[in-house]
Amino acid sequence: MNIGNTRPVMTKMLPKQTQFSGGLNQFVRTPQAGTFLKLFDYERLPHSAVNQIKLIYGLVIISRIRAALSRGSWNEAREHATRDIMGWTFWFYAMPAVQRMFVKALVGMPKEYREALLHHPDGAKPATGVIKKLGWHLKSLFNSEMPSALQIEARCEQALNLIDTQAKTQRWKQTAVDGAKKQVNEYFHKLKNYRNFASFTGLVGAIALLGFGVVLFNIYMTRKSMAASQKH
């Protein structure tokens, strides 16, 4: 889905308006928010906007590398680069992909749950072409529609409302209505749990990789490099 302006930026080309201008020029185009605000305005105070965090974290990484170099340590600079660039990417881009990968790859998840958790924006997988298929899979990891647990709860409530409406208007047997509610509830409960387990996998993956893996890898690499430099 395209995001952006639906109309060209015309504001600057229009004549300047005075407060009491009327007639033909009476409509001043709505002023554009501008690139800075569109990127970095707060979504909800007092939380930082995600784009702000991206920028700040990105530049802080540079400052860490610079500070490491200023005390003459290439090893430390390399450590910061490895750890933080990986952290930046994982925080902002890889975690949703890991969640989608979980849904795609979890063995034993019935189709009725899988198709309710992931929807590819382009629809069905192309029948031919290795590259086309690969592109389709990549796109599905980053762009496919995936509901949050709250959205699933909202859908559950809608389904229960549907049953209620039916029960009111059509005079179904109470046992049938109760059974239907129970079955619908079970389905959504399980769907939500699959969704939450996907989130959990993303979280555990992030912590394992960024909290432990990269740190240990860095220590290993630095020791190796120190040992190698000592041999000379």
Partner: peptide, 28 residues
Amino acid sequence: DAHVGHTSLHNALDKVTSAPLRQALHAS
């Protein structure tokens, strides 16, 4: 979540065992 939401609604209603009620729900 228009697409997945709709899919999940229909899939949930598929679980309803009482056939006439299930059909009526799908239709609504």
